[in-house]
Design a protein around this nucleic acid. Structure first.
Lengths: 211, 211
DNA sequence: AGCAATAAATGAACGGTGTTCACAGAACGG
DNA sequence: CCGTTCTGTGAACACCGTTCATTTATTGCT
């Protein structure tokens, strides 16, 4: 009985098509320009048909949000593989900022649009894509701490959080405060890296008061 | 000829009243909930009347944006007066984060809503409230540099920018990624401070105990 | 094949939005 | 008192998200 299979597949394909077209619209004109009516027009269905595949506009937004986040995560993946932690942090910074600047509307949708959207990313404490990619950052700072290159007494998780906030701040200020022209994002990113990474201890571990 | 004066005053008062009510609506329900029709209803005028005082909804938003920014600037002012630069930076951090957390919708409107809104803050390179308050941050890092407490070779303006991005990132992640629960903003802020401020050079001046 | 049942798709409507504009009314200057 | 100017408005336009009864297409069964 392959008929129900085919129907399911076609249904999934249409759903996928809708999401694809929606993604294009968001990337081209921004999330605000994504209207159910224009989306329906673009996929050549009546507006009401969209509601057979998605609960409402927010459901589409949520889906685009998690997919966008997966893209971001994928963009970070090569950098995350780098062994040397300082280099890794630098490459992660580069990748993160590059993604945000090359796909501004996607980044906006993920992190700047609505708290209800990004909730989906962090609802599971360990499972979701959000905590998983945050863990990548934490690991860098754990490795940095092991190498004695973090500010003393600050847990890696908190350093990771500050670092993430720094990256996010760099991008979102560039995206929102377009009037303010400062240094390029990459330069700021490297400044952030060098600010959070300490010089390696010269001799033994403590080595602060003496010499 | 006090009549035209009175009319002008009444006109200004009405404009002010509209802005006040709009501000209340934004702070209570967020910017998206601010509609011209509800605003007109609230001030007991017809919607079209609003257009006699503002070009459109964006004009109101812009005005609220610059006023919100002025509030933010005012909130920073006491901290900016502190002499000792490290303490000053710490106090500025506290004030900035406090404002963002206590007035989330105002902060959103200023920095997270639309690039066209915050453009007004930074359109004048020196004049506007934006560059003026950024200069406060730059000055801190200039003073820190003079005290030999910044990472070497990094211009104060860039450190200030990274610092601002860090603060903004901390707040905006708290406001948007509500699902992600990390350390409290104040803790992250202090971590940011200690990350960007270096220990004083031993040769130049003996370290003093403050706090 | 034809018929009943199920799934897919839609047209029309509801209530909401920002904005415009011709018009009415009040307030003013001469 | 009249004419002008300013203030205010109702109605309309073009959108928006969403719902629902209804139509259309497709399937399973006899």
């Amino acid at each position: 009985m392959g008929i129900t299979e085919r129907k399911e597949r076609q249904r999934a394909e249409l759903r996928e098509h809708i999401l694809q077209v929606a993604r294009d619209m968001v990337m081209k004109e921004g999330f605000d320009a994504l209207s159910m009516r224009k989306l329906a027009e673009a996929v050549e269905y009546a507006p009401a048909t969209l509601y057979l595949h998605f609960e409402n506009r927010d459901a589409i937004a949520r889906e685009l949000c998690v997919r966008g986040f997966q893209e971001l995560f994928a963009a970070l993946e090569p950098a995350a593989r780098v062994k040397e932690p300082v280099e890794r942090l630098s490459r992660l910074t580069e990748a993160y900022l590059g993604f945000g600047l090359k796909q501004p509307e996607t980044y906006r949708l993920i992190f700047m649009e609505d708290a209800r959207l990004s909730e989906a990313l962090f609802q599971d404490a360990k499972e979701g894509a959000g905590p998983q990619s945050f863990a990548v950052l934490v690991r860098v700072f754990e490795d940095l701490e092991a190498a004695g290159r973090t500010p003393e007494g600050t847990p890696p998780a908190r350093l990771a959080e500050v670092f993430w906030a720094g990256l996010h701040g760099i991008i979102s200020l560039k995206l929102t405060c377009s009037g303010f022209q400062g240094a390029p994002a990459e330069v700021l990113g490297q400044t952030l890296v060098t600010s959070l990474v300490r010089e390696p201890a010269r001799s033994a571990r403590p080595a602060r008061r003496s010499r």
